[in-house]
Simulated assay, not measured.
Amino acid sequence: MKVGVISDVHANRVALDAVLDDMPAVDALLCAGDVVGYNPWPAECVDILRDRVAASVMGNHDRAVVSGAVFSFNSMASAGVEYARDELNDLQREWLANRPTSTIACDGRVRIVHGHPDDPDYYTYPDEFSSELLGDEDVLVMGHTHVQHHDVYDEGIVMNPGSVGQPRDGDSRAAYAILDGDELTVEEHRVNYNIESVQEAVRKAGLPERIGSRLVEGR
């Protein structure tokens, strides 16, 4: 079984389209959260993924949008949350609200969380990856850091596919991964997309321009 793994789309439809166009044929698509936030296509990204993902979890931006709560976000993140709240319809909000904080996929072999198995808001960077994060699953998928990385242990795989819509690992290209469940291997992928068109859409939506300019930096 080959599985496409994505995370942190952050309402960047241009990047999401590029990833899905680039992705080879897979048996399932998994998402580690934060479909919305920051960029100006929250409704479109929710619609695309609710029709395509086999399993997904709720990210902190997703939770902020559907809960109405105010979190300690910076001005860019807060603006993206408010924008998404205005853009989503009831069905789209319901889909986001029904995402769990942790879920099991692929016949119990894959666990998906957003930040950490014990804390959905904890940023688990690659230097904290270890086999101790694994439970009964063969593969643990995390998002949240926007940093693409995976490690293979005797006990299984710990991985972050990176961010589709706002990479923060110094590479501006949209990130995703392919998990081979039979061989227990991970292929990390990057794909170029039209960042200038996202920057223009950010300006037209009245969102902070820094949301678009940082995409070029991969930060």
Rank of each mutant, 00 (worst) to 15 (best):
Gly156His: 04
Val198Thr: 07
Arg52Met: 12
Leu20Val: 06
His61Gln: 05
Ala77Ile: 01
Ser213Asn: 13
Met1Trp: 11
Asn60Ile: 12
Val3Gly: 00
Ile157Ala: 04
Ala201Phe: 05
His116Trp: 01
Ala28Ser: 13
Glu183Phe: 10
Gln92Val: 05
Ala64Met: 04
Lys204Tyr: 10
Asn192Trp: 11
Asp90Asn: 14
Leu134Arg: 07
Arg109Pro: 02
Leu184Gly: 10
Ser7Trp: 01
Asn194Arg: 14
Val110Ile: 04
Ala77Met: 04
Gly4Leu: 04
Ser213Lys: 14
Val139His: 00
Lys2Ser: 06
Met1Gln: 11
Val198Lys: 06
Leu88Glu: 00
Lys2Met: 03
Val66Ile: 05
Glu128Leu: 10
Asp86Cys: 13
Ala55Gln: 06
Met1Asp: 08
Val141Pro: 00
Asn60Asp: 14
Ala54Glu: 09
Asp121Pro: 00
Gly206Asp: 05
His114Phe: 06
Ile211Met: 08
Gly80Ser: 09
His189Arg: 15
Asp180Gly: 06
Val216Pro: 02
Arg13Val: 00
Leu20Asn: 04
Ala105Asp: 00
Gly80Pro: 01
Ser130Val: 05
Asp8Cys: 05
Asp27Ala: 15
Ala97Ser: 15
Val3Thr: 02
Ser78Tyr: 13
Gly37Trp: 01
Gly108Met: 05
Glu94Lys: 13
Arg190Thr: 09
Asp169Leu: 12
Ser163Glu: 00
Ala18Asp: 02
His189Gln: 13
Ser7Arg: 02
Asp121Phe: 15
Val65Ile: 05
His10Lys: 10
Trp41Asn: 01
Glu94His: 14
Asp119Ser: 03
Tyr176Ala: 00
Thr185Phe: 09
Val26Ile: 14
Lys204Arg: 15
Pro208Tyr: 14
Pro126Phe: 12
Thr185Trp: 10
Ser172Thr: 13
Arg168Phe: 12
Met1Thr: 11
Asp180Thr: 07
Trp41Ala: 07
Arg50Glu: 03
Tyr38Asn: 03
Tyr193Gln: 02
Gln148Tyr: 02
Ala79Pro: 00
Ser56Ile: 11
Asp118Phe: 01
Val14Arg: 00
Ala25Tyr: 13
Val53Cys: 08
Gly33Arg: 00
Arg210Ala: 12
Asn192Ser: 14
Ala43Val: 00
Ser75Met: 09
Gly212Asn: 09
Met159Gly: 03
Ala201Met: 06
Ser72Gln: 13
Leu96Cys: 07
Asp107Glu: 10
Cys31Phe: 09
Glu183Pro: 07
Pro42Asn: 09
Val26Tyr: 06
Phe129Ser: 05
Pro40Lys: 04
Ala25Leu: 14
Val141Gln: 02
Ala15Thr: 08
